[in-house]
Amino acid sequence: MHPILKDIRLVAFDLDGTLVDSVPDLAAAVDRVLGELDLPAAGEAKVTAWVGNGSLTLVERALTDALGESPGAEPLEAGNLRFLYHYGRDPGSRTRLYPGVREALDALQAGGWILTLVTNKPYAFIEPILAQFGLERHFALALGGDSLQRKKPDPAPLLHVASHFDVPPPACLMVGDSRHDIAAGRAAGFRTLAVPYGYNHGEPVSNSLPDGLIESLTELV
């Protein structure tokens, strides 16, 4: 057992960039939206730097990059709806599970930890992706970016899962790949653990000073 798990009862995981590499599917949906507007494709490299704050922000960044200026509210809303349509049709065919994730989740579940999922991805896409990898049974509760009025880096989703299971925040751990995960965890009073292989807007997640950093989730167990 990793020392960071000492006295921890509940573990909250981020999804994109922590458990799964979803950029190929996200980029495909973004590029379909741009193509419909006769704008150049963004590609996976740019999308990697844009993900992490929910679909609306992702689309806003893509449109701003392609247009050279911020889109208006109506074009942004229309673009987001088209993105949700395209991504909803195929949210997981190119998405891959990171090495060691299944083994870590199996071991943590067998060890009695409460496992939860807290992502900024819209809730409707969570179940199809988890089901694709047979991971839905691992999580006692999953929250998407639209499950509550506020999302990470606001601490509200983490405080919600802690309250839901009646676990005090100091007995909870947030595991993620970005500064938003670390900021949310710290603000909620959770212990924080980062993985360096995900998406963090081109910055090392270690800059956010998490309580721990591991190269693979297998190091947890």
Results as ranks from 00 to 15, higher is better:
residue 46 K to C: 10
residue 190 F to L: 15
residue 172 C to K: 05
residue 122 P to R: 12
residue 26 L to E: 01
residue 123 Y to I: 00
residue 28 A to T: 05
residue 13 F to I: 13
residue 141 L to C: 13
residue 125 F to V: 11
residue 74 E to T: 14
residue 197 Y to P: 00
residue 193 L to D: 03
residue 70 S to W: 01
residue 48 T to V: 06
residue 202 G to Y: 04
residue 129 I to E: 05
residue 211 D to R: 10
residue 192 T to D: 07
residue 12 A to Y: 02
residue 202 G to R: 09
residue 24 P to S: 05
residue 112 G to I: 13
residue 78 A to K: 15
residue 4 I to K: 06
residue 73 A to Y: 03
residue 112 G to E: 08
residue 199 Y to T: 10
residue 187 A to W: 06
residue 91 P to S: 08
residue 8 I to C: 11
residue 166 D to A: 15
residue 189 G to F: 06
residue 147 S to R: 11
residue 97 L to P: 05
residue 24 P to V: 03
residue 175 V to T: 05
residue 93 S to T: 15
residue 181 D to S: 06
residue 63 L to R: 06
residue 172 C to R: 06
residue 158 L to I: 10
residue 84 L to T: 04
residue 188 A to K: 07
residue 179 R to I: 08
residue 107 A to S: 14
residue 53 N to Y: 10
residue 96 R to W: 00
residue 184 A to F: 03
residue 214 I to E: 13
residue 113 W to T: 04
residue 53 N to G: 06
residue 186 R to P: 03
residue 91 P to F: 00
residue 154 D to N: 14
residue 27 A to D: 02
residue 191 R to V: 05
residue 73 A to W: 01
residue 119 T to I: 02
residue 19 L to W: 04
residue 40 P to D: 06
residue 15 L to I: 07
residue 156 A to N: 02
residue 86 H to K: 03
residue 196 P to L: 03
residue 212 G to T: 02
residue 119 T to C: 02
residue 145 G to W: 02
residue 9 R to T: 07
residue 124 A to N: 05
residue 24 P to H: 04
residue 134 G to R: 03
residue 182 I to C: 09
residue 216 S to G: 11
residue 36 E to V: 02
residue 87 Y to A: 09
residue 90 D to R: 10
residue 65 D to I: 01
residue 101 V to F: 12
residue 7 D to E: 15
residue 172 C to A: 13
residue 152 K to M: 12
residue 138 H to W: 13
residue 135 L to E: 13
residue 123 Y to M: 00
residue 112 G to W: 09
residue 74 E to M: 12
residue 156 A to M: 12
residue 154 D to C: 07
residue 190 F to H: 13
residue 121 K to A: 07
residue 122 P to I: 09
residue 56 L to K: 15
residue 43 G to C: 07
residue 187 A to N: 08
residue 12 A to E: 04
residue 161 V to F: 06
residue 99 P to Y: 12
residue 101 V to P: 09
residue 157 P to L: 03
residue 162 A to Y: 02
residue 68 G to L: 01
residue 84 L to E: 13
residue 98 Y to R: 10
residue 143 L to E: 04
residue 131 A to Q: 15
residue 119 T to L: 01
residue 192 T to F: 11
residue 3 P to D: 13
residue 59 V to Y: 05
residue 133 F to H: 10
residue 15 L to E: 05
residue 83 F to A: 11
residue 7 D to R: 14
residue 124 A to C: 08
residue 20 V to F: 09
residue 88 G to P: 10
residue 111 G to M: 00
residue 62 A to K: 09
residue 148 L to C: 08
residue 105 L to N: 06
residue 89 R to F: 00
residue 127 E to N: 10
residue 194 A to C: 03
residue 172 C to I: 03
residue 148 L to T: 07
residue 159 L to N: 07
residue 104 A to S: 15
residue 125 F to K: 12
residue 220 L to G: 05
residue 152 K to E: 12
residue 165 F to N: 10
residue 163 S to M: 09
residue 5 L to V: 04
residue 67 L to D: 01
residue 153 P to R: 06
residue 216 S to P: 04
residue 112 G to S: 11
residue 37 L to A: 15
residue 210 P to L: 12
residue 182 I to E: 07
residue 45 A to V: 14
